[in-house]
Nucleic acid binder design. Structure first.
Length: 217
DNA sequence: TTTAGGATAGTCT
DNA sequence: GACTATCCTAAAT
């Protein structure tokens, strides 16, 4: 039922610096095969994390049990759990050990839309994969997919050569307030694509709870 | 329409 | 103990 997908991206594709891989990923197709069915998304928004140079990177403070995949060879998925309920997915790139990765922030569902809808019944079609955690939910990506080789021909989680995004439509946005690798643009997205989330100004999360210092409850 | 705040659990200091 | 590369809902306009 599903149309045959284009060939896999070679590992070579990921064995480059993040600022090359990230924009090149726009328009490529991420597919996840599950017992529920196959779902594929065309990537429309990504964000680069330059390893130890980026204070916001999980790799900034060195290798830990959680981020170990980032320090491995390129072409692998780094999936992490955050905010107590969400998963986000990165693609490791750069030479082995450099801990660079690209966060997949948004995509457009191009196959398996019915399956994705079942997973996110309350989402409009446009919102199915609009956001890093939504993308993972729509594709059924969770902790089990951490460390998977997305270049493996028989792999369940793979990246395929999609129609590359028009270079004229690729926009970049450096993050304000982050130093190190200043000339590297951090965000990449396809201008005008409805599945790209609107730019959100750097909003530090404010703590809500006051500490219950005095006895009580 | 925009904005604000709550929820949730794994990870690191 | 405090933080997080987030999402969803409710309330206000």
């Amino acid at each position: 039922m599903n149309a045959p997908l284009p060939p896999l991206l070679p590992r070579d594709f990921f064995d480059r610096p993040v600022d090359e891989v990230a924009p090149a990923l726009l328009g490529q197709v991420l597919r996840h095969r599950t017992p529920d069915g196959d779902v594929a998304a065309r990537l429309t928004e990504v964000e680069a994390y330059a390893g130890p140079l980026d204070p916001a990177s999980h790799a900034y403070r060195g290798r830990t049990a959680r981020n170990a995949v980032m320090f491995g060879p390129p072409g692998h998925a780094y999936v992490y759990f955050t905010y107590g309920m969400h998963f986000c997915m990165n693609l490791v790139c750069g030479p082995d050990g450099t801990s660079m990765a690209v966060l997949l922030r948004a995509g457009e569902i191009v196959a398996g839309e019915d399956v994705a809808r079942e997973r996110r019944p309350r989402s409009s079609v446009r919102d199915l994969a609009r956001g890093p955690a939504r993308l993972c939910q729509a594709l059924g990506i969770a902790r089990e997919q951490n460390g998977l080789d997305v270049c493996a021909p028989d792999g369940s989680l793979t990246v395929h050569a999609g129609e590359p995004a028009d270079p004229a439509l690729i926009r970049t946005g450096p993050r304000t307030g982050v130093n190190g690798a200043k000339e590297v643009p951090w965000r990449f997205w396809i201008d005008g694509d409805p599945t790209v989330s609107p730019y959100r100004p750097h909003v530090p999360r404010q703590r809500k709870k006051s500490v219950p210092t005095r006895g009580g409850r």
